[in-house]
Each structure stands twice: as C-alpha cells, then as structure tokens.
Simulated assay, not measured.
Amino acid sequence: MAMIQPHGVILAGGLARRMGGGDKGRLMIGGQPLIARVIDRLAPQVDAMALNANGDAARWDDLALPVLPDTVRDHPGPLAGVLAGLDWAAEMGCPHIVTAAADTPFLPPDLVPCLLAAAGPSGLALAATRQDGQTWPQPTFGLWPTALRDDLRAALGQGVRKVLHWTDRHGAGLAIFPTEPLDPFFNVNTPEDLARAEALA
C-alpha cells in the first residue's frame, strides 16, 4: 500500500522580537518574501499545506493557505504550532505532518523523504545537522504523527515548552543533513542574518 504523504505546516507563530516584531516571513530576499521561498521548497514534498500563525489571519490571504492559530494560550512556542497542525491534519485523515520554519529559505528539497526514513518507533523524527562531531537537532523541522496529538496537548497543559523535552520522551529519530556548502536550516533572526541570506540567494 502506498505511503500517505504528510501534510506540511509552516510555523510562523513566533513574535520575531530580534527583528523588531512583525512577520519575518514577509521579509524580502532575492526579490521574494522568505515565506514564498519556504512554500516553493516544501510544496513539492507534501500533499497539502497550511500556515501556523497568530493574529489577524487575513494578512496571509495572498498565500491561499489555511491559517491555523495556536489553540494554547500565551504563545508557548513551536509545539503549539505543531499541535494546531496535527489537529488540522487529523481532521482530514492524514496520519502525519512535516513542519518547517517560515524564516528558513534554504530548507532541504529532500526534507520529507529523509524525515520519513528516519522516523522512530512512534513515527516521530527531527531534522538535525552534524558539525565538529556534535549533532544539532533542528526542532522546528520534524515529522509528527497525528496519533500523538492528545499526548502533546496534555504535555503543553503541564507546562512543557521545549520541543526536545517532548520528542525525547517518544524516541524521535534524527535525519542528519549536511551543512556544506550551505546550512539548509540557516534562519533569519537578525538584520545581519537577512543581509547574509540576501547574499546567499
């Protein structure tokens, strides 16, 4: 039986404090918004896509994507966006989602197949890089089974905020990606990062 492709969820729910607030995904590099580059990279790898974002959903109308706000109060971080995505996918009968951050314009074109291949026993996997003998998980890039959404909801209710605290409980696999010639998870957090992304683009 053919594997059902995951749905994709772009995480744009952060507050972008280091960029002075606002939607980082709207920042331009190479004449294109960051989020458009993320969509272009992720869309061919998934069956459907949605955006996790808070505030006025109408500001994203031009993307023609479902907008999923956090269902947990007080912006508890990326896990809240994952939960919103899991609930959305479960309603459509999709068994898993893949998440990507809205500020990572160079994400891997093989992100989804590599995550699927790396999934642990629970179906969870995170992307990671390896540098100087150390492994660095990329916690906003993951494969998440909808079967775990109630467990995640309970964990958030108990105050869990760090992605790895929750994924470690469930034996998440790691998909290791090379960082040469470019770290595919380079993200734009500061004006300096934006200038570097512009040069790389």
Rank of each mutant, 00 (worst) to 15 (best):
M1V: 00
M3W: 00
Q5K: 13
P6C: 01
I10V: 10
L11H: 01
A12W: 02
G13K: 09
G13H: 11
M19T: 01
G20F: 02
G20T: 01
G22S: 12
K24T: 04
G25C: 06
I29C: 11
G30T: 05
P33D: 10
A36H: 08
A36M: 11
V38A: 11
V38C: 13
I39L: 15
D40Y: 03
R41Y: 04
L42P: 05
L42F: 11
Q45G: 06
A48W: 00
L51Y: 07
G55Q: 14
R59W: 01
D61R: 07
L63Q: 04
A64N: 15
V67E: 09
D70W: 00
R73Y: 05
G77M: 10
P78Q: 06
L79K: 01
L79R: 00
G81W: 03
V82Q: 03
V82A: 04
L83N: 07
A84L: 09
D87Y: 05
W88S: 07
P95T: 00
P95Q: 02
H96S: 06
H96T: 00
I97P: 10
V98M: 10
T99I: 09
A100E: 02
A101Y: 08
A102S: 15
T104S: 15
L107A: 09
L107H: 03
L107F: 04
P109K: 11
D110K: 06
D110R: 05
L111T: 04
L111H: 05
C114Y: 00
L116T: 02
A117E: 13
G120C: 10
P121A: 14
S122W: 05
L124H: 01
L124S: 12
L124C: 12
A125H: 08
L126S: 07
T129Y: 09
T129S: 15
R130K: 13
T135A: 12
W136S: 11
P137S: 08
P137Q: 11
Q138M: 13
Q138I: 11
Q138E: 11
T140Y: 07
F141M: 12
G142R: 01
W144L: 07
P145D: 02
P145M: 05
A147P: 00
A147G: 08
L148W: 00
L148F: 02
L152W: 05
R153I: 00
A155Y: 02
L156Q: 06
V160T: 07
R161Q: 12
H165D: 15
W166I: 03
R169A: 15
G173A: 08
L174G: 10
L174A: 12
A175L: 09
F177H: 09
F177R: 13
T179V: 14
E180A: 15
P181K: 10
N187L: 06
V188P: 05
V188G: 10
P191I: 02
E192G: 09
R196S: 07
A197N: 09
A197P: 11
A199R: 14
A201Y: 09
A201F: 10
